[in-house]
């Protein structure tokens, strides 16, 4: 499923990140890489998705969050 489809407090693992090299650089530099465990903290309509990963609270705008495939637990 997509990151944007996860529920708050749901745990999961990042599976696939789509996008060009520029986006890949930005998203991986902040810590989001394939295989990383995460927790969705907030996922509100029209707001960036808030996730907790590598001990950091990270906000990812919705358009980019659409490109992140996750496996939810």
């Amino acid at each position: 499923m997509k990151l944007t489809e996860t529920r708050p407090d749901q745990n999961g693992v990042i599976r696939k990140i789509g996008g060009d090299a520029h986006f890949m650089n930005r998203i991986t530099a902040i810590g989001v890489t394939e295989g990383t465990a995460f927790q969705t903290v907030r996922n509100d309509r029209k707001m960036p998705v808030l996730l907790y990963l590598r001990e950091t609270l990270i906000a990812v705008n919705r358009m980019d969050a659409e490109r992140i495939e996750v496996e939810a637990q």
Binding site: H22, F23, R26, I27, I30, P48, L50, T56, L57, I58, A59, V60, N61, R62, M63, D64
Partner: peptide, 10 residues
Amino acid sequence: RSGMIMELPP
């Protein structure tokens, strides 16, 4: 211009 990807510090 790119969408927000940022850390919310504690």
